[in-house]
């Protein structure tokens, strides 16, 4: 069981990620955007953060950069959910400090496999 923070401005996506991962025995917290995620992540420690890119207030790339700059998240896997699997987008994520990415659309099975891979 891992503690996972799922960040997406879409409630439907959050639900899908949340229910899928909870069903797999993880403990999932949710945040609406980067700002909220940062707030939650500062109060609580997570083993994995999965974030959407395109969000109001603070986008996922900025969130990754912010988290990575904090000592407590320096080595925590940070996954980015992205619709554009372009090299540019991936590079942007990497440069911010993302561990890896999951390309949308994905199904729950892919999500679980990826999370299992990250958590080992």
């Amino acid at each position: 069981m891992a503690r996972i923070l799922a960040v997406d401005d879409s409630a439907a996506m959050r639900q899908m990620v949340g229910i899928t991962l909870t069903g797999a025995g993880h403990q999932v917290s949710q945040a609406n955007d980067g700002c909220e995620a940062l707030e939650i992540a500062e109060k609580q420690k997570f083993d994995l953060v999965i974030t959407d890119v395109n969000m109001p207030n603070m986008d996922g790339i900025t969130l990754v950069r912010e988290l990575r700059s904090r000592a407590s998240y320096k080595y925590v896997p940070l996954l980015v959910l992205t619709t554009e699997a372009t090299a540019e987008r991936k590079q942007q994520g990497k440069a911010a400090g993302a561990t890896g990415w999951l390309v949308k659309p994905f199904n729950p099975e892919r999500l679980l496999a990826t999370v299992a891979k990250v958590l080992g």
């Binding site: 990575r68 940070l78 561990t99």
Partner: peptide
């Protein structure tokens, strides 16, 4: 420092 791990 990117959350990656060779073991994985």
């Amino acid at each position: 420092a990117r959350g990656n791990d060779p073991l994985r």
